[in-house]
Design a protein around this nucleic acid. Structure first.
Lengths: 126, 126
DNA sequence: CTAGACCTTGACGCCGACGTCAACGCCAGC
DNA sequence: GCTGGCGTTGACGTCGGCGTCAAGGTCTAG
C-alpha cells in the first residue's frame, strides 16, 4: 500500500508518516516509481505509535516498542527496552498525578481565600 | 529600582522581565536615562506571576491577576476575571488528574501484559 | 580617562510534532 | 494529450517562554 492508504487506515496525515520515517520509526522502502510502500506490519507499527502517543509518550519513547515489533515480537512492550520505558513512564505519571493533586489543593485554597476576600470586601464596601 | 535588582529579588532573569513587559504584564516606565524603573508593586506582580506559573498557569492566564493587583486590590485572585480563570484552572487540573489516572491504569495493564508475555516466552523458549 | 558593570534594542535559536506551501513527478481515465 | 489525483523533496511556520548573542549607550569607581 502507498502512503495515502496507510494514512487513511490509521487516521493520521501523510505528513505525520513522513515525519515518523524521518525519525527512523518507519522504514523507507520504495517502489520502482519512488513511491513509499507499506505493509500490514507498518500499519501495526503506526497504530502502536499512536496508542503510545495518546498515552503521553514522546515519539522518541515509542522507538523501543516499534523496534520490538519489527524484531518479530508479538507484543511491542515485551522487550527489555520497552519495559524500561514503560516503567519509567509509569513513575513519571505517578509523579505528575501527585504534583497535580498538590496543585489542585493549592488552587482550592486560593479560591477559598479569594472568595473570602470578596465577601469581606462586599461587607465593608457595598 | 532597575531591572537587575528586580530580577535578583524575585529570582528570574532580566530577559524574563523584558519578556513580561513585551506581553504587557509589566509596565514600561523609564527613568531619564532610558532605563526601566520598578517599584515594590512590580515586585509583587512578578512574584504573583511566578507563583501562578509554578502552579501551571500560562503567562496569558496570569494577566487578570496582575491587572487585579494593579487595580489596587490586596489579593490578586479577588477580581471576577481572576476568579473565573482560577475556577477554570481548577476544572482543568481535575480533568488532567482524571485523565492521568486512567493513563496510569492503562500503563499498569500494559506492564502486566508485557511481563506475562515475557514469562510465557521464557517458559517456552529457555 | 578608562575599565567594567550595568543598561538598551533587535534578532535568531530552541524544543516537539507536525501544518502548510511550493514546485515538481507519475499515472489513470477521458 | 490533458486533467486530476496521487506521490515526491525541501523548507519555512506554529506555539510558549524564554536563552543567547551582538552592538551599542550609561554610569560609577579608581
Amino acid at each position: 500500500m502507498r502512503i495515502g492508504e496507510l494514512a487513511d487506515r490509521v487516521g493520521v496525515s501523510t505528513r505525520t508518516l513522513r515525519h515518523y520515517e524521518s525519525l527512523g520509526l518507519l522504514p523507507g522502502r520504495r517502489g520502482s516509481n519512488g513511491y513509499r510502500v507499506y505493509d500490514d506490519a507498518d500499519v501495526r507499527a503506526v497504530r502502536e505509535i499512536r496508542m503510545l502517543v495518546g498515552l503521553g509518550f514522546a515519539l522518541e519513547e515509542t522507538r523501543p516498542f516499534v523496534d520490538c515489533l519489527r524484531a518479530g515480537h508479538e507484543r511491542a512492550g515485551s522487550c527489555p527496552d520497552s519495559l524500561a520505558v514503560l516503567r519509567r513512564k509509569i513513575a513519571e505519571v505517578d509523579e505528575s498525578v501527585d504534583r497535580l493533586r498538590r496543585v489542585r489543593a493549592e488552587l482550592g485554597d486560593q479560591l477559598v481565600e479569594a472568595t473570602h476576600a470578596r465577601c469581606e470586601f462586599s461587607l465593608f464596601s457595598p
